[in-house]
Simulated assay, not measured.
Amino acid sequence: MALSLPRKRTADRTPATPTSTPAPTAPPETERARDTGDSPSGGNRVYTVQRIGAFAVAGVIAVFGILGLLNGLDFFSTDGERVLGLSSNGLLSVISLVTAVVLVAAALRGPRVASTVMIVIGVLFLVSALANLAVLNTSWNFLAFRISNVAFSVVAGLVLLMLGAYGRVSGNLPSDSPYARDTSDDVPPVSPDEYPSTPADFAAERAMREAEVAVVQHIATFDQRRRVAAMSQVTSRKERRAIWMSFDRARRDA
């Protein structure tokens, strides 16, 4: 009689695999970048465009303000003097320098701050253009505006608004936008008992789908319409399935 030696089972030689793998945690730099709106490398396209735009507008405004102060302009003169093709006085020069400093500080702070500040200052530029246009050539012209200043304020305001809204005001933000956020965190976790687990649950799920499709296509039976109407009163998947199966139990008990 041939003897057969017992063979070791393959499962004994296979290393045990962990049942679950812990979710990787984001490094502190990534978490900080997510909160501030910066990318981990600090150089995404949206932030670069906004930063360069803020620096450019701030540079023009700063040069205008510095030249006005160096020329020793009267602080509250309503006539003003020519600076870079625009009219200015001491008050407008100081306001220009303060605005330039705010833009630079916002650009260095981060994309969200830069965007918000540029939008706000852009609106203020447009409001200033309209307000000073109304008092042009009057004694209320405290900033010594002329029509060239009004045109510059409109152009600068629109540029700041477009730069501030770039990559932020959109229904489909690019993936590298610091304003794009993962909406998966907003979705509440689904309880495991929401999903079907028994053959009866799976059969009920299939019947539920068939009934809902039939209702949409206007070919549902009276029983299907009644069940779908009852399920519409609840929201969770488990409750809908329980209502459907209660109809089945009622039919069996009848």
Rank of each mutant, 00 (worst) to 15 (best):
S139F: 01
G80Q: 07
S4A: 10
L163H: 06
A100Y: 04
L70Q: 15
S139V: 04
V49P: 02
R112W: 10
R168W: 11
T10N: 05
P22K: 13
A207V: 01
P15I: 05
A211F: 02
R241Q: 10
D79M: 00
R112Y: 04
P40N: 14
L91D: 01
S148C: 00
T30Q: 10
P174N: 14
L133T: 09
A180D: 06
P40C: 14
V102D: 02
S177P: 01
T30K: 12
R32L: 14
L173M: 07
A203W: 00
G37M: 06
W140M: 09
V117D: 06
A54H: 06
Y166K: 05
A156L: 11
T99E: 01
V213W: 11
M208H: 03
L158S: 12
F64K: 04
R109T: 13
D253R: 12
P6F: 05
A151F: 05
H218C: 01
A165C: 13
L108H: 03
M1I: 11
F76M: 11
E239V: 02
T221V: 03
V57T: 14
P6R: 12
T36E: 12
G85T: 09
I66Q: 04
S39C: 09
V113R: 05
T48P: 00
L163Q: 10
T17G: 02
L97Q: 05
P189G: 03
A33V: 04
P189V: 10
L70C: 10
F202Y: 15
S20G: 07
T221A: 04
P192R: 11
Y179I: 04
E31S: 08
G80T: 03
N44T: 11
Y195S: 07
D79E: 14
F76G: 00
E194F: 04
R45E: 11
F222E: 15
S41E: 10
V98F: 08
P174R: 13
I243N: 08
R249W: 01
T17I: 14
Q233D: 03
L92I: 01
W244A: 12
D176S: 11
A11S: 15
A220S: 12
A242C: 00
R209N: 08
F145C: 09
I147D: 13
A204T: 14
L3R: 11
A33K: 06
Q224P: 00
F75P: 01
R168N: 06
S88G: 04
R146P: 00
E29N: 12
R225G: 13
A156T: 12
D79Y: 00
F247G: 12
I61H: 14
V63K: 09
V155P: 02
L126F: 00
A250Q: 11
N141G: 02
A151Q: 10
E210H: 09
K8F: 06
I219P: 01
L136N: 08
G157A: 12
F55S: 08
N141R: 05
L103Q: 09
V83F: 07
R34S: 05
L84H: 07
D253L: 15
V127C: 06
Q217T: 09
L86V: 03
G157R: 07
D201I: 08
V213R: 15
N89W: 08
T30E: 10
T78I: 13
T235K: 11
P111I: 00
P178A: 12
E239I: 01
R241G: 07
S93H: 04
Q233L: 12
A23R: 14
V98A: 15
E205W: 03
G157W: 08
L161W: 07
F247E: 05
